[in-house]
Amino acid sequence: MEVRTIKVFTTVDNINLHTQVVDMSMTYGQQFGPTYLDGADVTKIKPHNSHEGKTFYVLPNDDTLRVEAFEYYHTTDPSFLGRYMSALNHTKKWKYPQVNGLTSIKWADNNCYLATALLTLQQIELKFNPPALQDAYYRARAGEAANFCALILAYCNKTVGELGDVRETMSYLFQHANLDSCKRVLNVVCKTCGQQQTTLKGVEAVMYMGTLSYEQFKKGVQIPCTCGKQATKYLVQQESPFVMMSAPPAQYELKHGTFTCASEYTGNYQCGHYKHITSKETLYCIDGALLTKSSEYKGPITDVFYKENSYTTTIK
């Protein structure tokens, strides 16, 4: 009895394709271990004539594949690729409408935090270190965002349907971005203890939790000093293409032309909904596939993004 075979390709990165001759009487799992086709788990399936010449994702289970996976995804987590594939199996079914010149995501599976993050990423200057993220990001900007969303979920250790947080998501993504040249110098002034300067680099240099107003941050924000008295913390120097200011959701007025974009969060910790506000020729609110415009805006804002380049204080 002759062994019926077909020729397929296996890959971990969709760049390096490895030619395989597979036995049609055995499952993919018996031949390769966990195997995925377009995100779908085909591990328990036997090869079919229609699979001839198709590319299958496999887990990096030998040295060659491990090197290829690390170079593309910059992670050695053995569960990463499987999590990416199972997320992709959902995100490829989502709709990605162009809204006001940006790629958004039609609401499904509690994905409003991903839509808000995706919209924000198209408006701030950011370059990702893992080629996987950078490639998928370019495709997302062009309207094909399924891979990018699935990668975000995998890097953030999230599953489809789980509630997510924009600030946490951005923080994970910033860790995989090139923020080497970003720098922030802060000064804390206390009447009792004097003053202390701190220099922050990388992710810490672009994120701040405690106030939404970048102007206020430049002037000074009140913080408790270690001595128990009130101290003032203010920005001395900022070198970065953008800054992200966050605070627990509270009524906040966004003035046209003073910011790049913002995240609105309605609801409580267990259950809520994100919308995205962007400042173009007027203010726009993007909620999944829905767009509304207004000249002014007041609502429960939790993150505001500002364009920056270089700032030095005039406070002496």
Rank of each mutant, 00 (worst) to 15 (best):
I315K: 13
I124R: 04
A40F: 13
A250F: 15
T76H: 12
K93W: 04
N89Y: 15
P97D: 02
Y234T: 12
Y72E: 15
A69D: 06
H90C: 14
E52M: 12
G53N: 13
E296F: 12
V203M: 15
Y214K: 05
V206T: 05
S294H: 14
L173C: 06
D38K: 10
I301T: 01
T292A: 09
G228D: 06
A250L: 13
Y96F: 10
Y28K: 00
V21E: 14
E162C: 06
P97R: 06
L102V: 00
N187A: 08
E168A: 08
Q31F: 15
T116Y: 03
T91L: 03
K201S: 14
S104I: 02
A136C: 04
A132P: 03
K307G: 11
Q230D: 11
A150K: 01
R83K: 15
L114C: 00
H74A: 05
E162P: 01
V160F: 00
H176M: 12
T192Y: 09
F259S: 05
K229A: 14
K298F: 09
V12N: 08
Q122C: 04
V160Q: 00
V185I: 11
S246N: 06
S50F: 15
K293V: 12
L59S: 07
R4N: 13
N129S: 12
H273Q: 04
H273N: 06
E71T: 10
T19R: 12
S181V: 06
L114H: 04
F56H: 00
T10Q: 08
Q237T: 11
M209Y: 10
S279L: 03
S25F: 09
G143N: 00
V3E: 13
T103E: 01
M244F: 04
L254W: 04
V160H: 12
T192F: 12
V166E: 00
G101P: 03
H90K: 10
V21G: 07
K7M: 15
L153H: 03
F80Q: 02
M245I: 05
D287G: 04
K307W: 09
A146S: 13
Q175G: 08
Y265W: 12
A87I: 08
Y265S: 08
S171I: 09
E239W: 05
G29Q: 08
Y137D: 01
Q31P: 00
Q222E: 13
N129M: 08
S79D: 14
F70C: 11
E204R: 08
G29S: 05
W107M: 15
E281V: 02
G194R: 03
Y172H: 14
N110S: 01
K233V: 12
L153G: 03
T159E: 12
Y234R: 12
V67A: 11
A231W: 02
P224S: 13
A117Y: 01
T313Q: 12
T266K: 15
A289T: 09
C149H: 01
Q237Y: 13
F9K: 10
R83W: 00
S104G: 08
R184Y: 09
V3A: 11
L254M: 01
A146L: 00
Y73S: 00
T278I: 07
C285S: 07
S104R: 04
D63M: 09
Q196A: 10
K219G: 09
E2A: 13
H176N: 05
H256G: 10
L119W: 05
M245L: 07
L119R: 05
T198R: 13
H74R: 15
F174E: 01
R184D: 03
I152L: 07
F242D: 06
A250M: 12
A154V: 03
S181M: 10
K316W: 09
F305K: 08
Y208E: 03
Q31L: 15
Y269L: 13
S263D: 15
Y113R: 00
N110K: 08
T43K: 07
D180K: 14
H276W: 09
K127N: 12
T260M: 15
K46A: 10
T75E: 12
N100R: 13
Q123I: 04
L102T: 06
G82K: 15
F148T: 01
H48I: 12
H273F: 01
K218D: 02
Q134F: 05
K293A: 11
A145K: 00
K233Y: 07
L17H: 14
T302R: 04
Q222S: 12
H256E: 06
G299Y: 03
Q123P: 01
Y72Q: 13
Q237D: 05
T11I: 06
D38V: 11
G228I: 01
Q30N: 07
D77Q: 03
S240N: 04
D135H: 14
S86K: 13
A136Q: 08
E71P: 05
H74Y: 03
L291T: 14
K316S: 12
F259H: 03
F70W: 10
L186C: 09
A115Y: 04
I301D: 02
Y311R: 07
C149P: 00
L200Q: 14
D109S: 10
F174I: 04
L126G: 02
C112T: 09
Y306C: 07
A231G: 05
L133Q: 01
Y269S: 10
V67I: 14
S295E: 10
E71A: 13
S240D: 05
G33Y: 01
S240Q: 01
P249G: 11
D38Y: 11
Y73E: 00
P78D: 12
E71I: 09
N147V: 07
E204F: 01
V188K: 15
T10E: 03
Q222C: 12
T232I: 11
E68R: 10
H51R: 00
D109M: 11
H90L: 10
